[in-house]
């Protein structure tokens, strides 16, 4: 079983928004970034995986098991970090551990203590006395202390400074070293993923725009910039998004190599960042 997480035709209907038969797969040993603007369906998807919401259709398999029928076993093997809430803010770190740890069959106090030490966390502090970054680290320590095979992180870095974010990324890179574990990481701060993500799943308006390797995206998508005169180039018809300004235009294309060959040097073509890709997809072809 090489797939840690398989989502197939998953749907969830709300009045004003729905998740439309989304599918993607995360393999062992890799980090998948789950990106998209706020309200695109990232949290809904994660809540469906964790069975916090009831799906209307489709299938979710974690470690090859149905996420509802094998709920308890699956959760024993998942480590999660959410942006919020943090459990009972009135408890101390130690009390929180005491309450949560016994539920995990493979809990390891030693590992937990190591992480607390590494993060400089005092067990006697109440959760509400901790900074946002520290709260995230408490949860990260919990998520990493029970031999979880799949880490599910829902916007773990939002509101955190670059130093803490970098620390998290280093830890995630450590996690996948043994080739058995995987990380599913939802975020709208894509610079975190530009570096370490192996796969990117991009969701917008409840639909998956793409779910592929980051290398594929970085080697193929292109940001084309040129003078207004170049706008009638037929290749631009395939552009995902286009933005005109007074002096020229910028467009996102899916296949920059083809564009390269088809143009006569009148454009500048650059590698886009994930952020630019999200921006162009969500804004579309407005002027």
């Amino acid at each position: 079983m090489n797939n840690l997480l398989e989502v197939k035709n998953l749907s969830k209907k709300y009045q004003e928004f729905s998740l439309q038969e989304i599918s993607f797969t995360l393999k062992k040993g890799y980090i998948m970034g789950f990106i998209g603007p706020n309200g695109a369906g990232k949290s809904t998807t994660i809540k469906l995986i964790m069975n916090l919401l009831k799906r209307d259709g489709g299938e979710i398999r974690v470690f090859g098991l149905d996420n509802i029928r094998a709920e308890r076993e699956i959760k024993d093997r998942i480590g999660f970090v959410y942006e919020e809430p943090y459990f009972y803010e009135e408890l101390t770190v130690l009390e929180m551990k005491k309450v949560i740890a016994p539920f995990y069959s493979k809990w390891d106090d030693q590992i937990f203590d190591q992480y607390l030490k590494r993060f400089g966390l005092s067990v006697k502090k109440k959760i509400k006395e901790l900074s946002k970054g520290m709260k995230m680290k408490v949860w990260l320590a919990i998520a990493l202390s029970h031999q979880a095979e799949l880490l599910i992180l829902d916007e773990p870095t939002s509101g955190l400074d670059p130093v803490v974010r970098r620390e998290l990324l280093d830890i995630l890179a450590d996690v996948i070293q043994d080739e058995e574990k995987g990380v599913f990481f939802s975020t709208h701060i894509t610079t975190d993923l530009d570096k370490i993500a192996d796969y990117i799943t991009f969701i917008n308006n409840g639909e998956i725009i793409f779910s592929t390797t980051k290398d594929y995206i970085m080697d193929n998508y292109g940001l084309v910039k040129g003078k207004k005169a170049g706008l009638d180039n037929t290749l631009l018809k395939e552009a995902v998004g286009l933005r005109e300004n007074k002096f020229g235009f910028e467009a996102l294309v899916k296949d920059r190599n083809r564009f390269w060959k088809g143009s006569k040097g009148e454009f500048i073509i650059e590698k886009p960042t994930l952020e630019e890709i999200i921006l162009y997809y969500t804004r579309g072809k407005q002027g």
Binding site: L52, K75, F80, F87, E90, I100, S105
Partner: peptide, 18 residues
């Protein structure tokens, strides 16, 4: 009241508990 204030259902239903 503590359960409600801390939205504890979200976390409780994410750990291995039915």
């Amino acid at each position: 009241a503590y359960d409600d204030k801390n939205k504890s259902d979200i976390v409780l239903n994410s750990i291995p508990l039915v």
